[in-house]
């Protein structure tokens, strides 16, 4: 059965980011207690895959790399309609940067989700916001990639026309499978999970796989396989005048304009 692979990332639920804090002693980011959620754009990626499934009868395989306590977030992908989830989870994978993450996910796709027609990712994750993993997965899989996709069209499921938003304009690419696609929120509106989906998800396979089963080169995964390091974290401090003006609109408007004039910006 032709297969479409969707890469997803469970992230700390953005609704609770006010609970993130830096440990002043260690400089380590504390995210304890924040429940995992699917990265929003990954749902757009999944929606593209589910529509292809409906049109061409493909199977949708979700892959992820995350700690094992994120399975609840991954069940949501199954409830939306994915057929199965493979989660790479192992202490050896912790601390991975984008290169090590991409290597691991590519290896997971090779081992468990090949052959495939397409690999689809969200263009960016809300937490790390690097947007780097999709192109690097494509490198490790030896396939072309297209990121920043706003439109995905195909007649036959083989030849695709993809529009890439490059802000100043748009590039339209034509590409035949297999390739990797990273989508933006403009590509579609992800479906909502319904009760039938949630019930169905309970019996769908969600397999957790460790580093040994993936036959990973342990020098290329986790912190050890990551070329980058975090030297420190800080909360940005911005020093400004902070002169607060209050009063009737007429008065404060006059006062503000005088201040701006003095500051030389009017």
């Amino acid at each position: 059965m032709p297969n479409v692979v969707v890469c997803v990332k469970p992230i700390p639920d953005p609704r609770h980011w006010d609970r993130l804090f830096l440990d002043p002693e260690t400089g380590v980011l504390k995210r304890a207690g924040i429940p995992p959620a699917l990265n929003p754009l990954d749902k757009n990626a999944l929606e593209v895959a589910l529509q292809l499934k409906e049109r061409f009868g493909w199977e949708v395989t979700v892959v992820s790399m995350a700690p094992p306590d994120t399975t609840k977030a991954l069940r949501e992908a199954l409830a939306m309609g994915a057929d199965r989830v493979y989660l790479a989870s192992d202490k050896a994978l912790a601390g991975a940067d984008t290169l090590a993450t991409a290597y691991t996910l590519a290896q997971l796709i090779r081992k468990k989700a090949s052959p495939f027609h397409l690999v689809i990712c969200g263009n960016i994750s809300l937490d790390g916001s690097t947007s780097q993993v999709p192109a690097q997965i494509a490198h490790y899989l030896g396939i072309p990639h297209i990121t920043h996709a706003t439109h995905v069209e195909t007649e036959d499921g083989q030849l695709f026309t993809i529009t890439m938003n490059i802000k100043k304009g748009e590039l339209v690419f034509r590409c035949t499978t297999p390739f990797l696609l990273a989508v933006t929120k403009d590509v579609n509106l992800p479906r909502l999970v319904n009760v039938m989906g949630i019930i169905a998800a309970e019996t769908k396979p969600l397999e957790v796989i460790d580093a040994r089963e993936l036959e990973l080169d342990l020098d290329k995964v986790g912190l050890k396989g990551s070329p980058t390091r975090v030297r420190g974290l800080f909360i940005p401090e911005i020093k400004r005048r902070r002169e607060i003006l209050t009063g009737e609109p007429e008065e404060v408007a006059e006062e503000l304009l005088n201040k701006l004039h003095e500051a030389g910006v009017l």
Partner: peptide, 21 residues
């Protein structure tokens, strides 16, 4: 968008680190 599309691929080919944005 173009830099963010190209840089990670080049970094992976060079097996080096890349930081974003």
């Amino acid at each position: 968008p173009l830099g963010a599309d190209l840089a990670p691929r080049v970094a992976a080919q060079l097996e080096t680190g890349l930081s974003a944005h």
